[in-house]
Design a protein around this nucleic acid. Structure first.
Lengths: 170, 170
DNA sequence: TTGGAAAGTCAACATCGCTGACATAAAATC
DNA sequence: GATTTTATGTCAGCGATGTTGACTTTCCAA
């Protein structure tokens, strides 16, 4: 795996990528990239009366149709009061349907309506376009590394949610 | 560069990493990783009276001592009113010093005081610890890819700020 | 000297987090 | 069957952080 000629300073360990400077650059990369990552959906959401919280709810309901409020709560990492405010407007506006659970009637299973699915598509089209452009620029090897680092950065509990989504592995 | 034997399905193009599924997984990776990325500093900031906005200001003032309010404004992507509220508390609390510009006396050059530098260290120690663990787990090749994708994702204007920070390239 | 840029400030507002308290319905348990 | 626990919803209030708009002060530069 080691390219001949690229040796130079690596005398066996080569932990130069773990210097504080490299770590700080990584921190800044996360900051600036996340700003860009949310910019396009935010712009679209302004046209509706929604915010980033609505986008997140819509995203995960689309990904796991029928998921319960409690599960969504844990994924998003917010309180039920906070989520409820968001969820109520989405239900009232006819973007989300909350069906009473078949097995456990206390639960609500969440689904996107057609209108909800339409907004989801508009939002994720924009977000995927940027992601696709970045992926294409960086190439498949870089993308694999990107995913590996992000996954290693997650809290274990959240990582399980991440991995449990469709298309689990690589 | 192409490893013999890893061919399989790549008949020349192999754009499987650009499928919508892969892009959605990338989006979710960004979401969950960013949550983790901010969790440690957020926990520390609770002990003081500060929030994430204070952290960001402190971070960039530490990175570019003497930067002006206007520059910081553009980096953070917020309004001057929003930043001013944050900056005022930091100045009042003696964490940041705002020196009147030598050349242009309208400008304020921002510096961390010793107390400010102490908090910066506490915050970035925590954040770097997580980043370091993720880097170590993923390895140098993955880290390079991670940085490449994030950089490609940024808005061009923000990318220039990112690149202008110390230790610019890789 | 005048125009405009940099900075500070005040007011008002929206989003989206939070806690606390309470209600309801249904499942689970004793 | 009675009690407890769980899932959800809701109300009230608060805090951090973003926004616009309007205004002032300072001061560089044409």
């Amino acid at each position: 795996m080691v390219m001949a000629g690229s040796a130079g300073s690596q005398g066996g360990e080569s932990l130069l990528f773990l210097t504080d400077e490299q770590l700080r650059k990584g921190i800044e990369a996360m900051f600036f990239a996340y700003r860009a990552f949310t910019a396009d959906p935010d712009r679209i959401l302004e046209n509706y009366e929604y915010g980033r919280a609505h986008h997140r709810a819509i995203h995960f309901i689309n990904r796991q149709p029928g998921l319960t409020v409690n599960t969504l709560l844990a994924m998003l990492g917010v309180t039920k009061q906070s989520l409820n405010r968001v969820l109520r407007t989405l239900v009232d506006d006819g973007l989300v349907e909350a069906r009473i659970g078949r097995r456990d009637k206390r639960e609500r299973n969440l689904f996107l309506t057609e209108r909800g699915a339409t907004l989801e598509r508009e939002l994720s089209d924009a977000q995927r376009a940027r992601m696709r452009a970045a992926y294409r620029t960086a190439g498949p090897t870089a993308v694999a590394g990107f995913r590996e680092v992000l996954e290693a950065m997650m809290d274990p509990e959240l990582r399980r949610y991440y991995q449990s989504m469709k298309e689990s592995g690589a």
